[in-house]
Amino acid sequence: MLLGGWTRLLSGEDIDSIPGMAWDAQPFAPFSSGPVESEVPRGWFKPHDAQAQVQPADPDPKSVPRFVRVPKAFLAETKRNIMKELKAQGSTEYVGTGDVLMAWWLKTLYSHRSLTDQTPMHLHILRNLRGLPIFANDSPMKDPYIHNAILAIPVPPIPVSAFQTESLGALALCLRRSIMAYNTDFAGLRADLRWRCAESNRQEIVRPCPSNAECLFQTNWGAAKLEDLDFTGAVANNETRTGARVVFVYPLLCSHPTRSRRGITWAVMEDADAVWMCETRGEKDWERIRQASGVTFIDAPFM
């Protein structure tokens, strides 16, 4: 929303013609009152021991961001095959391209882990709440709102070994079922929001997984269509004002990200042929992934 408004201003539009957020917008105010029904939001945990409060020594200290290019043709063919399998089983369920993309990436990321590794993996899929009918009059958010309006869909814990033993279709369907269940559980969503908005919880510390587990966050910026933004208005007056479009979306604000950047998968944009993702992991972890999965790494200096 911010970038869209910015590019329109650059192109000469009057600021009053561009929808903006009211200064006193408080769409989450109703969730600040009412009963708080749970100890933590769904998918989150309170640290119950001192060990959970301390970050262990990092055996893989160098963080490396990488971009991942996944051909659309591969995703489309894989999705068709999964849908054929579901239909042959008499199922009416479906998977989306995003489910297939994430399932493939999970299998790639953890292809080097032991087949006996039962470490629970807690997946959190970030969800934009603006379009859900949970706001005033049980409607979607009607006015522009540029502040945070995101929660995370918790996927039931999956043993790390399952990313090798389960089929791509089974993993994609697991993700789709979690998303569908979350998107229709409006009572659960409101309960999560009441916990988040309660004054009594402002200082609470919660974790995305227990201390004996691992976690991964996944977010998809596809709906923002950042690749379609028009920056023609930014071209200098003495230059030819041809269409100045986005060439690539670079989501990292630092060239040498810290450990805290790890554990987040971004699907950042699409071009005509592929979906682009970005992820930061340890240097040693990337090498193990390369050896086990067979993916090709093309290293270049980061911007």
Score class of each variant (00 low, 15 high):
Lys84Trp: 01
Leu3Val: 13
Ser38Thr: 11
Ser161Lys: 11
Trp6Pro: 04
Val155Leu: 04
Met121Ala: 07
Pro56Met: 04
Asp16Tyr: 12
Thr265Trp: 13
Gly294Val: 03
Thr240Val: 04
Ser260Gly: 11
Val206Arg: 06
Gln164Phe: 02
Ile146His: 06
Glu287Gly: 01
Met180Gln: 14
Ala274Ile: 05
Arg176Met: 09
Thr108Ala: 03
Ala88Ile: 04
Arg196Tyr: 13
Thr119Ser: 06
Arg241Leu: 11
Thr119Lys: 03
Val275Met: 10
Gln203Phe: 09
Glu13Met: 07
Gly43Arg: 10
Asp228Ala: 08
Gly282Asn: 09
Ala292Glu: 01
Ala170Ile: 00
Ser255Lys: 15
Pro41Thr: 10
Ser161Trp: 01
Val160Asp: 01
Gln203Ser: 15
Phe231Asn: 06
Val295Asn: 05
Pro61Gly: 11
Ala29Met: 13
Ile134Met: 00
Gln164Lys: 11
Gln203Tyr: 09
Phe297Ile: 04
Lys284Thr: 02
Arg290Lys: 08
Arg202Cys: 05
Thr184Leu: 10
Pro56Phe: 06
Val155Lys: 01
Tyr250Arg: 08
Leu126Trp: 00
Met21Val: 15
Asp16Gly: 13
Arg241Phe: 08
Leu189Arg: 00
Ile18Tyr: 11
Phe186His: 15
Val160Asn: 02
Ala236Ser: 07
Asp24Glu: 15
Ser255Val: 08
Trp276Tyr: 14
Trp266Tyr: 12
Val68Met: 05
Trp266Val: 02
Gln89Pro: 00
Ala25Asp: 15
Phe45Thr: 12
Leu216Met: 12
Gly243Pro: 10
Met1Lys: 09
Leu171His: 03
Asp230Val: 12
Thr78Pro: 04
Ser91Gln: 08
Gly169Glu: 02
Ala149Ser: 14
Asn220Pro: 04
Val247Ile: 06
Cys209Asp: 03
Asn237Gln: 03
Pro35Lys: 14
Arg69Gly: 06
Ser33Asn: 09
Arg66Thr: 07
Gly222Glu: 13
Ile18Ala: 10
Thr265Gln: 14
Pro301Lys: 02
Ala181Trp: 04
Ser11Lys: 13
Ala274Tyr: 07
Thr232Asn: 07
Phe248His: 09
Gln164His: 04
Glu93Val: 06
Asp14Pro: 09
Pro56Leu: 06
Asp192Gly: 06
Ala52Thr: 14
Glu39Thr: 12
Arg177Ala: 07
Gly98Asp: 10
Thr92Met: 11
Ala22His: 15
Tyr182His: 12
Ala136Phe: 05
His124Leu: 14
Lys142Cys: 01
Arg196Trp: 15
Cys215Ile: 06
Val70Ile: 15
Thr280Asp: 10
Glu93Cys: 12
Cys278Gln: 02
Ile146Asp: 01
Asp185Ser: 00
Trp286Pro: 03
Met277Asp: 01
Ala22Gln: 15
Val36Ile: 09
Leu10Pro: 13
Arg202Asp: 02
Val206Met: 11
Ala149Lys: 05
Arg241Asp: 07
Met21Leu: 14
Thr7Tyr: 10
Asp138Ile: 04
Arg42Leu: 12
Met21Lys: 04
Gly5His: 10
Pro47Ile: 15
Gly98Met: 04
Leu189Trp: 05
Thr242Asn: 13
Met269Ser: 09
Leu9Ile: 12
Leu129Trp: 04
Val268Asn: 04
Asn148Lys: 00
Ser211Ile: 08
Pro30Cys: 08
Ile15Ala: 15
Ala52Asp: 13
Gly222His: 14
Pro19Leu: 08
